[in-house]
Simulated scan of single mutants.
Amino acid sequence: MNETQDRIPTPCPACSPELETVHEVLSTGGAVTVRCSECGHVHKVQPEPEREVTVDVVISQDGESVTANVTTPEGETIAVGDEFIVETEEMLATVRVTSVQVGDEKRVEEATADDVVTVWSREVDNVGVNVTIHPQDGSREDSRSTTVYVPGDDEFEVGSVEAFGDDEFEIDAVVVRDDAAGYDRDRYELEGDAVLAKDAKRVYAYDQQTSAWSAW
């Protein structure tokens, strides 16, 4: 029974105890107060319990994977980009759906929970972001890559200078992940553009340490 409906079908103990009639919903709570549209009798009905299913979740983090499970209403839609909290004895993490498996090796963008075999996901509380750093002279031949680890809600802003350990670089562009929502481009390169770390597939930047590219 959907308690948000204005009208619901249910038997009326006064005029139709065996067959359902249309009832107006007067109030909701533990029990739903309704009025029969046939005879006007007001009574309470218990909402039907929502059926739930348990879904396996594979969580990727730093190149490793762990398996957990979550319980959700069977009619709930699970889609790529959805985020939810997974709690196990080993971890408590916010994860983002990257793929939904509904059959043997068949993956789709979304499905209802009762059709889902496995949800593939990645942790987004803390993430590793790949950064390609170019020399200050713009040469691509001597570019190098590194991975920085930051909270998922941190931002990478084009034009800002960031420091991580021995690296200091100015962000030139940010490529957005396929599972990220709310972006109108897959690459941001205008000064002031910002992308959340959990949404960043790769950052391109220019080195800010003058001695970093010395042959000595």
Rank of each mutant, 00 (worst) to 15 (best):
I8K: 06
C12R: 13
C15L: 07
S16I: 10
V25I: 05
L26S: 05
T28V: 12
T33S: 12
S37T: 15
K44S: 14
Q46P: 11
P47E: 09
E48H: 11
D56V: 10
I59Y: 01
D62V: 06
T67R: 01
A68I: 06
P73W: 04
P73E: 08
G75R: 12
I78Q: 08
I78T: 10
D82A: 13
E83R: 12
E83H: 04
V86C: 02
L92K: 07
A93E: 07
Q101F: 04
V102D: 07
E109Y: 04
E109C: 02
A113M: 12
V117D: 11
W120Y: 14
D125E: 02
D125I: 03
N126K: 12
N130F: 05
N130H: 06
V131H: 05
T132G: 09
H134K: 15
E155P: 02
V161H: 06
G165Y: 03
G165L: 01
F169M: 10
A180M: 03
R185Y: 10
E189S: 15
E191T: 10
D193C: 03
A194V: 01
A194E: 01
V195Q: 01
L196F: 05
K198P: 00
Y206V: 14
D207N: 15
Q209A: 09
T210P: 00
S211T: 09
W216A: 03
